[in-house]
Computed example of a mutant assay.
Amino acid sequence: MEKLAFDAVIFDMDGVITKTAITHAAAWKKMFDEFLQKRAEDLGETFVEFTQADYLLYVDGKPRYKGVASFLESRNISIEFGATTDEPGQETVCGLGNRKNEAFNEVIERDGVEVYESTAQMLKDLTAAGIKLGVASSSKNCAPVLEAVNLLQTFGARVDGVVSAELGLSGKPEPDIFTTACQMLGSTPAKSIVVEDAVSGVQAGAKGNFGLTLGIARENNEKELAENGADFVVADLEEVGGINGLNKLFVSNNS
């Protein structure tokens, strides 16, 4: 194997490592549709459902409450922010976010978690090559989800929704969670790779000046990822060509 030009790779979790992006999207739709249906009935208005386009534009990759606020703003709906301790479903930003999380956990408990095989193989190969690995996710469920698929110990750094709250980090599209994971690994953005599937995530990678921001287009959103900061976009890590292929992309992007 050729000498690698990078020394760390930081992965998003949902939609990159685990197939939980689909679960998140379904939980968001369930929560918002229930809220919007009730609101339409109360106000005598027409119900307009929460769509996949809404998910990708306003919610995907963002911290939970920020996602709620972003979507409501898109519909010109103003409600109180509330408190993180609000009951799930309470008509506050936090209450709706907590209901979404409840729905997500219900699905995970019922159906379990799947890992993308190509990502699992890449993680094994990178570990064998001595590359430092980090996970940076907006999710507060990151640790239990990774533990459920026996991958938690794979990562030398984890910066998720829980750690972000403790450290007061800004969420995506700001680069804080990626740069913090990079620091924890003892690396620098210039020598590191970000792997992301969300627009807000590739925006964060670009803002953080990472040596390579690789977009994974799980939602046929190649164009959106490329336009928002991804240096290269693939549909799946299988297309990269293993570690050597990843290294070629990194070198090409920095030449």
Rank of each mutant, 00 (worst) to 15 (best):
L96V: 07
R75Y: 13
E117C: 08
T85A: 05
L72V: 00
L96S: 08
L96W: 13
I79A: 08
A103H: 13
N101H: 10
E91F: 04
F71S: 02
T92K: 01
A103R: 15
V115P: 04
G97I: 00
L96Y: 10
S70R: 14
G95P: 13
Q121H: 11
R110T: 04
V113N: 05
F71Y: 12
V107I: 14
L72E: 06
E117P: 03
K124A: 02
T119W: 09
G82H: 08
I77R: 02
E106Y: 08
E106W: 09
A69P: 00
A103F: 14
E91G: 03
I77V: 10
P88V: 08
I79T: 12
V93C: 10
S74C: 05
L72P: 00
E109I: 02
T84L: 12
L72W: 06
S78R: 06
R110F: 02
L72C: 01
T127M: 02
A128L: 03
G112D: 04
N98R: 11
L123Q: 09
G82V: 02
G112L: 10
F104M: 04
N105E: 00
E109D: 10
D86F: 09
E91V: 05
L126K: 13
E106R: 15
N76C: 04
E73A: 14
C94V: 06
N76R: 09
A69H: 07
T85V: 12
D86Q: 06
Q121M: 08
S118K: 13
V113Q: 06
V115S: 05
V107H: 00
T127R: 15
G82A: 00
K124S: 04
G89A: 01
M122S: 08
I108D: 01
S78G: 01
T127K: 15
L96M: 12
V93N: 14
M122D: 00
E114F: 11
